[in-house]
Structure formats: C-alpha cells, structure tokens
Write a protein that binds this DNA or RNA. Structure first.
Length: 471
DNA sequence: CTATGTAAACAAC
DNA sequence: GTTGTTTACATAG
C-alpha cells in the first residue's frame, strides 16, 4: 500500500496562509461593472454531468471574475480544505464511486487558500491514491478505508504520523464536529455512512473507546439530527445502500452548529418520568428510511425548523445534489437561514422526490466572495443579488449588468428583485466573504437588510453566531 | 437551561 | 443486519 503524500508540497505550505480575505483571487483588480458571462453550453467551461457527486467539480473559475455555474458551484472549488486542487490529479481519498465525471482542473484557481488549521488536513496521508475513476463505474464502490490499514503507530512504516499533536484535541470533539471534519476532507464533502464509520475508526477514539456500537448510533443520530449534514442520493445500484451524506453549503460557510434539531425543548419539565418509558410515546415510530419517499408528518417538524436556525427545510428529503430549480426559486434560502420559508405540509409533500433532479440550473451564479470589497449596500441593493448560501444567483440574462460603478447609478430594486421570501422583513441573509467556509472566514449577517453582525468560524469549525436567535 | 452522548424503538430497506 | 428518524434519558457545564 502506498501512503504517498498526495499534496503538492508547494500547495501544502501552511505558513503562507495569511489573510483569508485577501487571497490573490480577491486581490484581483476588481471593478464591479463586469457583466457576468454566462455560457451555459461552453464545454470548456464546465462539463455538467448531472451527477450528485461531480456537481462541484465542474466549474472552471476564470480569473475570479466570472463563472458559469451549474448552480452548485461549490465551496470545494475554493476549497479551504486544500484537497482538491487544480492540476493535482489526485485527491485525497475519494472512493471511485464518489467521482463520476472527470474532475476538471480549475485553471484560474487560487491555490493559496489553505486552511490554517492543520487538523483539517492531517489525514490526507491516510488515504490512498487512486486512479481517475471510470465514469460509468458506479457500482464498484470500495471504501477507501481498507480495514487492514491499522494505522496503529507503525514506526517502521516510514511515515506513520498518524495524528499530529493537535489531533489529540480532535478526539474530544463532539460527534457533529468530527463528522464535519470527515466530510470536509472528503471529495465533494460527501461520504457514505460506512466511510464515516471508518473515518472515525481511524481518526478518533470513539470507536475504540466503546466496545459496543453506540458510537455508530451516535454518528447516525448526528447525521440525522444536525442540519449541517444532508443526504444526497446515491446513483446507481449503490442507492440501496443508503444515502450519501454531505455537508451543506451552509455548513461549509458557517460551520457546524449544535445538534438540537428535534430535541424536545421542554423535556418533561415536571413529572420527570423517571421510569423508562412506561408511558413513553413510541420513539422512532416515524423513523426509518421511509423518509426517503414518504415525507411523513412534515408539519410537526416545522416547529423544529423555526427553533433550529441551522436547519434546512426539508431534511427528511434527500437533497438533490444541486438545487432543484423549483426548489430554488421557491425557497431561495434553501439552507442555513433561520427564518425559513416553511413550506406547509402539503407543500412539502408536493415536493416529491426526484432522483434525477440534478439538471443544470438556468441561472448563473457567482460566489459572493467575488464581491469582496464591495460595499454591502451595493450588494444588497443590486437588483440581481439573491443571496444563497454563499452564492449570488444571477438571472439568466447575461445582458443585465450586475452593478454600476456608483451607488447612485444603481437601479433601484425593482419589484422583480428576487428576494427571498423572508428577506424583506425578518429574514436572514448570510453573506459570506472571503474564503468561504475556511477557518477564519467571516460573513456578514443581514437581518432584514441591515448589516448587523458578523459571523466567524472558529478553529473547531463551529460557527460563532453572535446573533444566534435561540427562540 | 443548553449541548451532548447514549440508548433504543421503529421503519424501510 | 443496515440505514435513517425520532424520542427519551442522563449528565456535564
């Protein structure tokens, strides 16, 4: 087994990390008059494969000024993990299944955005190099974590270096955090459950510490309960095995928040039901993978949506790999916004699950980080901007200019402004700048159009939200 | 109280 | 048996 270091040493220079907000990409001469060129069919720009797993790989980002975006231009393109770099033909540990389409190099990509957090990258050597996947090889999934990689410190191995010193901290992190890390390092930030298990076996002591399988239960529990993780469908035969789990855009941008989604707010205040569920409502009566196709009891979840500022509206539904356009237009803040557009039960039920809803989206979008330096007012007053977890959605019409040079020239927000349903009054708009999702990235929280706060991501990947409304 | 871990019931593979 | 959802209890802080 080869345990090469996959990273280009030139890329892996931690010391060069300086300011996440001042990466070369952002330092480019910006004028905000450029109309975004949208070439839906430009093959050289992207190669959209309608696939759950490559939707993030197909973007060629050009000079940081414009991008064609198959809607789900992902943070991975600007990855803070540093794992999927242009020109680097290997990524750290993608199981072949995960990558269906060929990975496009990002010509103009910024290589300097390295996470300052060594923890996030220390695991790379654990994974094997692997050849570029055959596109149609969807069924031959083999976990990248071979069981025999007992990485028990084998000094003779050459480069054992299982975990660095700071890794010790990692072990004490909560499950949600660890899962976050696992996914963050994964290609597309997506993994299947078993690989998450394996990641835990390798990189944490949760597994070893417990003789039982409680830790797996906990992982599943967290995956289910924490809004940072979303399910995406697994194409092909493997779909039977379950979903893949992916970090939401919002999680990438904002970090993980607590796993409190459905937890009862007032747990049996009085009457403490000491005895184990004598009168207990059947726990998990609604559980199961049936959620995949039958959206049960959505209504009762809406309370949870409101109470959990981290929740995406349709957690029980597998999230299409990229935005379903209807979904997108209906709820443009599809994740991460506290004031959600809460679809009614019937609406949710109407949102039938479409396994093939990965179609390209008509809108062009550019990452908000491209607007670094632009006054907030300019952005928010743009008639085009619809903030969407790290991206600015643009209408299909490429002729419409984005911004004018002077604020005075800015056309007043028209009625056609695609605002989010709740951004007018009480909605949140998370408008992230900088290296989206990177440690230390900063975002501005808009509340009803007013810039009132700043969020940041701490070293642990947890978002610090000074305005976290706890209800 | 909140955040988290843990156990477990349960449903649908 | 596995995966995913949900409820419930315990406990640390």
């Amino acid at each position: 087994m080869k345990v090469d270091h996959l990273e280009d040493p030139a890329i892996m220079q931690w010391g060069t990390y300086s300011n996440p907000l001042l990466t070369p990409m952002h330092q480019g001469n910006f004028n905000f008059n450029y109309p975004v060129q949208y070439h839906p069919g430009t093959a050289s720009t992207y190669n959209y494969d309608r696939n759950a797993f490559n939707d993030h790989y197909n973007l060629a980002y050009q000079s940081g000024l414009s991008a064609s975006c198959p809607r789900s231009l992902n943070n991975n393109s600007f990855d803070m993990t540093g794992l999927s770099h242009p020109g680097v033909t290997v990524s750290s540990h993608p199981p072949p299944m995960y990558q269906r389409g060929p990975q496009q190099p990002y010509e103009g990509m910024d290589l300097s955005q390295q996470s300052p957090n060594n923890n996030l990258m220390q695991l790379d050597h654990e994974y094997e190099d692997y050849p570029r996947p055959i596109p149609e090889d969807l069924t031959a999934y083999s976990t990248p974590y071979d069981s025999d990689i007992s990485r028990a410190a084998t000094p003779s191995d050459g480069s054992p270096l299982p975990l660095r010193d700071d890794a010790l901290i990692e072990k004490d992190q909560p499950y949600a955090q660890l899962i976050f890390r696992a996914l963050k390092d994964a290609p597309n930030h997506t993994m299947i459950l078993r690989d998450i298990y394996d990641w835990f076996r390798k990189n944490t002591d949760k597994a070893a510490a417990s003789d039982s399988k409680g830790w797996q239960n906990s992982i599943r529990h967290n995956l289910s309960m924490n809004g940072a993780f979303e399910k995406v469908d697994q194409p092909g035969e493997e779909a039977r095995k379950g979903f893949m789990w992916r970090l939401t855009h919002d999680a990438l941008a904002n970090g993980v928040k607590s796993t409190t989604r459905y937890r009862s707010k007032q747990p049996n205040k009085r009457g403490h039901r000491t005895g184990l569920y004598p009168q207990r409502q059947l726990a998990g009566a609604m559980g199961g993978r049936s959620a995949k196709k039958q959206l049960r009891h959505k209504a009762r979840m809406h309370d949870a949506y409101r109470s959990d500022p981290y929740q995406s509206p349709s957690r029980s539904m597998p999230t299409p790999a990229t935005f379903d356009s209807a979904f997108n237009s209906e709820m443009s803040m599809y994740s991460g916004s506290p004031s959600y557009y809460s679809p009614s039960s019937s609406e949710v039920d109407a949102m039938e699950y479409q396994p093939d809803a990965y179609g390209p989206v008509t809108d062009s979008c550019i990452p908000q980080q491209a607007f670094h330096g632009l006054p907030n007012s300019s952005i928010s007053s743009s008639p085009l901007a619809a903030y969407n977890d790290g991206y600015i959605q643009l209408p299909s019409d490429p002729a419409v200019p984005l911004f004018t040079s002077s604020p005075a020239d800015t056309p007043s927000p028209s009625a056609s402004e695609p605002r989010t349903p709740d951004s007018q009054g009480s909605g949140w708009d998370d408008n992230f700048y900088g290296n989206m999702g990177g440690i230390g990235s900063i975002g501005f929280d808009y509340y009803g159009g007013s810039d009132i706060g700043i969020s940041a991501i701490n070293q642990d990947g947890f978002a610090t939200d000074p305005l976290d409304e706890g209800e």
